[in-house]
C-alpha cells in the first residue's frame, strides 16, 4: 500500500490498476473549437414600421438531449438594440460578457458622443466574429442584431461564425432560415412592405413562426423570449408560452402520433 499523502483518496493501484495519467496531459497541438456542444436553435426577427420584433426559444440542447429549458437567448443592449444568439451557448455567454463590458464602458464614458446604435453594434460584432474565424478559433454562433440605427430607423442584420454579414427586413437563423423565412417574407417581402407593417402584425407573424418551428424542429421548445424594439425602448419578455397549438395534423403522419405503422 502506498501511504504517501498524494495517494490518499485515490483508487488502489493493486485493485484498479495504475491511474492513466495520459488523460491529464495535452498531447499534440492545442485545439480550438471544432464543433458546437450545447446549442440553441433558431432566432427569428422581422422589421415593422416603428421597429423590430425578435424571438428565440428558451432551449439549450446537448446534441439531441433537451438539456436546459430556461436559457435566455435574447440579450438587451442599451435602450435601442436586442441581440439574438443561435448556435453554441458557451460562446453566447462569452459574447454576453464581452457586450456587457462594452456597454458599461460606453455608459461610464462621458466623452462618447452618442449611444451605440444597433448598426454600430452590428459592425462591432462583425469585427469580433471575423477576427475569431481568421484566427481559426471561431465563436460558433449566428447572431441577429435588432434595433434602431443611428438615424432611429428600424435596423436588422445578421453575423455568423465566419463573419458573414447581411441585412434584410426578415431574418432567421438555423432551422428558421428554412421554415420561418418563407412565412415571414409572405407578410414582409421587402423594405417597402416593412414600412407598412404594424407592430401587431409583426408580433403575430413571429409568434406563428415560433409555432411552426415547434411543430417541425426537433430541437425547439414551446417556451420562448420575444422582444420589441421601438423608439419607446426595449420590451423584452422571457418565458412566453406557445398558444393555440394544434397537433391534429400529426394524426396522419407516420412517426408523429401514437401509431406505429
Amino acid at each position: 500500500m502506498n501511504h504517501l499523502p498524494q495517494a490518499w483518496g485515490r483508487p488502489r493501484d493493486d485493485v484498479y490498476g495504475p491511474y492513466n495519467n495520459s488523460y491529464l496531459q495535452t498531447s499534440g497541438p492545442s485545439q480550438h473549437t471544432q464543433s458546437p456542444i450545447v446549442t440553441g436553435t433558431s432566432v427569428l426577427a422581422i422589421k415593422f414600421k416603428d421597429g423590430v420584433v425578435i424571438a428565440a426559444d428558451n432551449l439549450a440542447s446537448y446534441g439531441s438531449l433537451a438539456r436546459f429549458t430556461d436559457v435566455k437567448r435574447l440579450l438587451r443592449f442599451n435602450s435601442r438594440a436586442v441581440i439574438g444568439f443561435g448556435g453554441d451557448v458557451s460562446d453566447m455567454q462569452y459574447l454576453t460578457r464581452l457586450l456587457s463590458s462594452l456597454e458599461i464602458n460606453e455608459n461610464y464614458s462621458v466623452t462618447s458622443s452618442t449611444e451605440l446604435a444597433a448598426n454600430n453594434l452590428h459592425t462591432y460584432l462583425h469585427k469580433v466574429m471575423y477576427k475569431r474565424r481568421s484566427d481559426f478559433n471561431p465563436l460558433w454562433n449566428q447572431i441577429l442584431i435588432a434595433g434602431l440605427d443611428v438615424a432611429d430607423n428600424p435596423y436588422l442584420a445578421s453575423v455568423d461564425l465566419l463573419g458573414t454579414t447581411f441585412s434584410s427586413p426578415t431574418l432567421a437563423t438555423g432551422f428558421g432560415a428554412h421554415l420561418a423565412v418563407p412565412i415571414m417574407r409572405r407578410v414582409c417581402p421587402d423594405e417597402e412592405a416593412a414600412k407598412e407593417l404594424t407592430q401587431e402584425q409583426a408580433v403575430e407573424t413571429v409568434r406563428e413562426c415560433m409555432k411552426v418551428l415547434f411543430y417541425r424542429d426537433a430541437r425547439s421548445l414551446d417556451k420562448y423570449s420575444i422582444a420589441v424594439v421601438t423608439k419607446e425602448g426595449v420590451d423584452l419578455k422571457h418565458g412566453e408560452k406557445l398558444e393555440k397549438q394544434s397537433w391534429a395534423f400529426a394524426e396522419g403522419i407516420r412517426g408523429y402520433g401514437t401509431q406505429v405503422n
Binding site: 464543433s35 458546437p36 456542444i37 446549442t39 436553435t41 440542447s61 439531441s64 455568423d160 461564425l161 432551422f175
Partner: peptide
C-alpha cells in the same frame, strides 16, 4: 453526442 448536434451551416 458531440457530432449529433444539428449542422449549423
Amino acid at each position: 453526442i458531440f457530432t449529433a448536434a444539428p449542422p449549423q451551416s
